[in-house]
Each structure stands twice: as structure tokens, then as C-alpha cells.
Design a binder for these strands. Structure first.
Length: 618
RNA sequence: GCCGGCGUAGCUCAGUGGUAGAGCAGCUCACUUGUAAUGAGCAGGUCAACGGUUCAAGUCCGUUCGCCGGCUCCA
């Protein structure tokens, strides 16, 4: 069985508690077995947390001064199997906070478990339960299987080692996390590992190399992709499509520089707040001047767009004003956060800022969501989820709480009215306002924000850009601002669709759309002439005029995942026809040249995708 | 940035301290082919970089760089 594209292949995501689920009990109990085995091999190890995950479980350990290496996993796995063979019984007991601390101290547990008891106790928890099995005991809510003998000894595998901060905070000590895969049966484990191996074949980094889409070069720098001719065609096609859509929805396009003076980002409030995420400034000194001036590479387009809004006084009649730009931004992401095209340091955003009255907000939001759905339909994207990202009580969120409430309420209202399913992301809001994030999963199950719609009540204020429009009653008012990016950045979006399509792009955006395969030399003239005609219609076409055998031509061009191959032999020449062989199908049909041209042009113009994306069916 | 793994030809990968290899891709020649690899030949390398151990290092040790998987972060 092949993996469904949307199945989570990510080990890290903590499993929802399903009290009665046997699988949950197995994974949970297995984590205890792992901890017991680790303490046998490394008696000094201290325990952190060890929950079940969607594909197994993990446990965090503090190995003190021992450098834990991945090859130790084998030894630990062996111990685990022994423990399972001993059929140790899980027994339950209960105590209060003091009793729990006492018991943990007895067990030789360090600060982590005890800190956990204190935290729970502070939150009003008074009952603490322990599960004992064999010589091992752990503070734990359960539930568990009856004995370790109930655990599927052949359906688990220690998978990876990773660092993980205690309580998820960078300020705390980093513990060693051991990830394990675990299922109910060996067959399920095998199926999962096979699915994961399949998914790796569709990794956008691998496909990007095979299909010559992009290249990273150390001489340019990490996280700075070089887009090759093939990848650039995809970018250009997506951009062309975005321009058409924006035209249809009443946007005006603008273009802004990649750098700006420090003052701009002081005004926007990004400095000094987000200085860490920006490239350090360039200091420029004009000839004859005494002082230097600082310029920053832009990390976002909004400040520039706000200044365009402000370039002349605005009337309520100018609103809503929708400014769009495929703007290139630079962000200094920490090195370990970079990942192929998913997280880069140079990105080109499908950005736009909508300026409107408060009364217009609902309608603008509604039509923006509608535009998103149109985009998703074209790309045949069907599996995504809406997240309403709201603030929490952290102090990073600025502005009038009443406005926040109003905006959060309006977003929820419109989405409810549109019948959209969404979940709440508490604390996921931008510092200046709530947002809708549309979450996609890549093939490896990593969830990413692809599209976003953000409400901004901050940038228009007096302290920031002092954006104003004159209303019908002749008073000045602040516009409401909406940031939106349905197609994300070229980098993230293309990484996503490359995997989703398995590298087989729909005809309209495929780097090479049609490849002509003459059966023998005598057919080259017919092929070249047809290519010329297609080319005149702006179709990206090539003739395979190599001296390869015909079988080899089929093979090599199929492996390039070209949407359409045309077979041209003596028969086709005779009746002025072409034999069409589409990617992903062995059925082919011979049709007249005119019929083919008509079909192809319509397919490209309407951006039709005739088959299911490869990644959606594996 | 932190933890773990990895780095040999454009790509995929062999290589047990003792002369750097294969397949594919590329180039040349021959073959002209009707549906997933025609054959022969040629070329291709500072074994990521730097330092150390050794008579001898792709191989062992250290440092740096890069990539991958996590953690943190993601305006």
C-alpha cells in the first residue's frame, strides 16, 4: 500500500489521547519499556517526558555528560526485547504531591520529573499516579497494557535521536530525545517504513535535482536558491496566473526596492524587535558626508506598500485599495531552520495589502477566501486545513484588546458563514493582529503554513505609518489593513506542489510541455516543422533528435515527466496526424494535427489538469 | 543556534590503513530503430576543506564548511 499524501509521516507529533485505544496503550507502555532499558544501559540517565506519537512514541533523557550516539540504539533495543519477554506486570498506585516527590527521589529521578510534579501541583493537581513494571516505575497517567508481554515485540523500532529542550523552551537544558516507531502488528510497521521510503522519492529536493529546477551553491550561501531555467518557468507561470487572478479581483500591481533605510523599519516597528531575523545592515557613507546611513534588506513588503498608500492623500472613494507585488524578501533564518526550499533566506512572496474601511472588511475577507479557493481548485489542492490564529496572554501581541476581539470575531463569523472548517491556533497570531493560516502537509508529514490572511490594526496607527483616508463625513480615519499571500512564496509553494505532483506538473506550468519523438531520421522534417508551429503559439516544445533507439526516446522523455509526448512516424506523416502519449498513461490516441493544436491550446489557456496529482494517489 | 546522522565523478552508489572504482548522464564513432535502456570507445576526482596520528589516510583523530532529521524559531 502506498502512502496517502496527507497521512502524517512525522514521528514528532504527539498522539491525541484516546483512552480506550489499544494502540495508545501499547505506545505508552512501550515508552516505559524504553526508559527502563535506557536506565539499564545508562544508570545515570534522568527521565523527561515520554508520550505516544502518531507513529510510535518518544522519550526524553538527560544523559548528563555522556554523548549519546545513535549506534547505542541497537543495544537499547535489545534490552527492550528482553523486558518484553519478561512479561512484567503494570501496577497502578496513587499518592499526593509530597508522596510523588518522595517516590521520585527514591527512584533516583532528577529535577525534571520533580519539576513536573511541582508544576502540576501549582495548577491544583493533588492526585499523582505511578505505574510500576518490574524494577521500573514512572510517574504517569496511564493507561497501560496489562503486562509487557502484551507488547508487539516485532512491531517497534527505535528510529532517531534528536535534541529537545526541556518543556519546549530554548532557555532550558536540551535533553536527548529517542524517537521510536511502533504499531500493533509487524505488517503495519513494515508498511509504514515502506511508505516513508516511497515518500522520499518525491522529496522536492531530490526532484529539484532530477528535473533541474533549482540549485544551492555554497558560494552563494545557505538558504539562497539559484533557480535554474526549468524552475524559473514554473515561477513565471505561477506568477502570470497570479497576475491574472489579481486583475480579476481588482488589485493594482506595484514594485518596490529590495532595500530600505533603517528609518522605515523603525517606523514599522520591525526594528529593533525583529532585528535577529533580518540580515545585518549595510552601512553606506556618501562622499563628502560625515555620517553613515544604514540600509536593510527587506524582510517583508508591507512597509513599502504602506508608503505607497501614503504617497498621496486618500479618500474613502479610493477604498478598498488592493496593492499586489511578487516581492523578494530576505530573512536571516537560523541555520538549523533552513530546509530545502521550504525554509530559505531569500524568498519571493505572492504578497498583497488591502486597505479598507472597517465596514468593507467582511466583504474583502470573504472575497479573499474565495480567491484562495479558486487557486486551490486550479492546482487540485484538496487537503488543507484552516487555522484561525489568535492571540494568547503573552506580551508580544500589541494593540487595543477590543480591536483584537472584534477582528477575531469577524474572521470566525465569515468562516462560519462560508461553512469552512477551521481550528483555533492560540498564540499563533501575528504580533499586530489575528490571522488565518492555511496549513498543508508535505510528503514527509511536516505541516507548514502555505497561505495566510492577516489582519493588521497596527500599521495604520499614528505611531506607525499614520495611514489615513478622508471619509464621507470629511473626517480622517485609519484604514483596516489585510495582508494576504494565497500562493505563499515561490519557494515554499513550488516545494510543496513539486512533491504533490511527484514532479509531474500540469501542462500549463510544466517546464517542457510537449516533446516530439520522430520514429526515425526521415521523420525529423515533419517533427521540426510541427515544433516550429507549436513554438509560434508559445508552447514549450522540443524535438528529440538524438540518435537513440525509439524505445530509449520513450524511456528518457518519460523519465523527464514531460506531460505530452508526440509519436511521429511514417503513418502520422501520411495522414497529417500525431500520436499523443500523456504522462502517467499508456493509452495513446492518434488525432489530426489541428485537433491536437486546439486541444493543447485550450488545456494550457484554461490551466486544466487532466489527471490526478501523483502525490495524491501514492 | 542546539542534539543526532551524513559528505567519494554531474547523479546513484562500491571501496577491510597499502596503486581511487562501477552504473547512469556527457562526448566520439557505428547503428535508423513504432512504444521504458543498441553497441564500442573516450573523458570525467585536491575522496567537502584544513590540521594531526602513521613508513603509508578516502579509511583513524580534531576543527571548520555544507546537507539531512529533530528541538527552538517562522513578523
Amino acid at each position: 500500500m502506498w502512502p496517502k499524501f496527507t497521512d502524517s509521516l512525522l514521528e514528532g507529533k504527539i498522539m491525541e489521547i484516546e483512552e480506550k485505544s489499544q494502540l495508545y496503550k501499547i505506545r505508552h507502555s512501550m515508552a516505559h519499556v524504553l526508559a527502563q532499558a535506557v536506565k539499564k544501559v545508562y544508570p545515570e540517565a534522568k527521565l523527561g517526558f515520554g508520550p505516544p506519537t502518531e507513529t510510535g512514541f518518544f522519550y526524553d533523557f538527560d544523559f548528563e555528560n555522556v554523548d549519546f550516539r545513535e549506534d547505542s540504539l541497537k543495544k537499547i533495543e535489545k534490552e527492550m526485547k528482553k523486558i518484553i519477554g519478561q512479561k512484567q506486570e503494570f501496577t497502578y498506585s496513587e499518592t499526593d504531591a509530597n508522596g510523588a516527590v518522595e517516590r521520585l527521589t527514591e527512584l533516583g529521578e532528577g529535577e525534571y520529573k520533580i519539576e513536573n510534579v511541582r508544576n502540576l501541583s501549582d495548577r491544583g493537581v493533588t492526585k499523582f499516579s505511578f505505574y510500576d513494571n518490574g524494577p521500573f516505575a514512572d510517574l504517569c497517567e496511564g493507561p497501560h497494557v496489562d503486562t509487557t508481554g502484551d507488547l508487539p515485540v516485532k512491531a517497534f523500532k527505535l528510529d532517531r535521536v534528536a535534541g529537545a529542550y526541556w518543556l519546549g523552551s530554548e532557555k532550558n537544558k536540551q535533553l536527548t530525545r529517542i524517537y521510536a516507531l511502533c504499531f500493533e502488528t509487524p505488517e503495519e510497521l513494515k508498511e509504514f517504513t515502506e511508505r516513508r521510503a516511497m515518500a522520499e522519492k518525491f522529496d522536492h529536493k531530490k526532484l529539484g535535482r532530477e528535473l533541474d529546477l533549482f540549485h544551492f551553491d555554497e558560494k552563494v550561501g545557505k538558504g539562497l536558491p539559484l533557480w535554474l531555467p526549468n524552475g524559473t518557468i514554473i515561477r513565471d507561470e505561477i506568477e502570470k496566473y497570479a497576475c491574472e487572478m489579481e486583475f480579476k479581483y481588482g488589485y493594482k500591481r506595484v514594485s518596490t526596492p529590495h532595500i530600505a533605510k533603517e528609518e522605515l523599519y523603525l517606523t514599522s516597528g520591525h526594528l529593533p524587535y525583529y532585528a535577529d531575523s533580518m540580515f545585518p545592515p549595510m552601512e553606506v557613507k556618501e562622499e563628502g558626508e560625515e555620517t553613515t546611513e544604514k540600509f536593510y534588506l527587506k524582510a517583508m513588503n508591507c512597509p513599502h506598500h504602506h508608503l505607497i498608500f501614503n504617497s498621496r492623500p486618500k479618500s474613502y472613494k479610493d477604498l478598498p485599495l488592493r496593492l499586489a507585488e511578487y516581492g523578494t524578501c530576505y530573512r536571516y533564518e537560523k541555520s538549523g531552520e533552513l530546509s530545502g526550499l521550504i525554509r530559505v533566506r531569500c524568498m519571493t512572496m505572492n504578497d498583497a495589502h488591502l486597505y479598507m474601511t472597517l465596514e468593507q472588511f467582511e466583504e474583502e475577507f470573504r472575497s479573499t477566501v474565495k480567491m484562495y479557493m479558486e487557486f486551490y481548485d486550479t492546482f487540485k489542492l484538496t487537503e488543507y486545513s484552516f487555522r484561525l490564529s489568535v492571540r494568547d496572554d503573552s506580551d508580544k501581541f500589541v494593540g487595543d484588546p477590543a480591536l483584537w476581539d472584534k477582528a477575531e470575531g469577524l474572521l470566525a463569523k465569515v468562516m462560519d458563514e462560508m461553512g469552512l472548517n477551521y481550528f483555533i491556533g492560540k498564540g499563533e497570531a501575528a504580533f499586530y493582529g489575528p490571522k488565518i493560516d492555511i496549513q498543508f502537509k508535505n510528503l514527509m508529514g511536516r505541516e507548514e503554513t502555505v497561505s495566510t490572511i492577516q489582519v493588521d490594526f497596527q500599521s495604520a496607527t499614528e505611531e506607525k505609518f499614520a495611514l489615513k483616508y478622508v471619509d464621507a463625513d470629511n473626517t480622517e480615519k485609519e484604514p483596516v489593513i489585510m495582508h494576504r499571500a494565497p500562493l505563499s512564496t515561490h519557494e515554499r509553494f513550488i516545494s510543496f506542489i513539486t512533491e504533490y505532483y511527484g514532479g509531474a506538473f500540469p501542462t500549463w506550468c510544466a517546464p517542457l510541455q510537449v516533446c516530439l519523438l520522430p520514429v526515425k531520421d526521415s521523420c525529423h522534417e515533419y517533427a521540426n516543422e510541427l515544433a516550429k508551429e507549436l513554438n509560434a503559439d508559445f508552447v514549450r516544445v522540443e524535438v528529440d533528435d538524438s540518435s537513440n533507439s525509439f524505445g530509449k526516446k520513450i524511456r528518457t522523455n518519460t523519465m523527464k515527466k514531460i506531460p505530452i509526448l508526440l509519436i511521429l512516424g511514417e503513418q502520422e506523416i501520411e495522414d497529417n496526424s500525431v500520436t499523443v502519449r500523456r504522462y502517467g498513461s499508456r493509452d495513446q490516441e492518434t488525432i489530426s494535427r489541428d485537433e491536437f493544436l486546439k486541444m493543447l491550446k485550450a488545456e494550457i489557456k484554461d490551466r486544466v489538469m487532466l489527471r490526478e496529482p501523483m502525490g495524491s494517489i501514492i
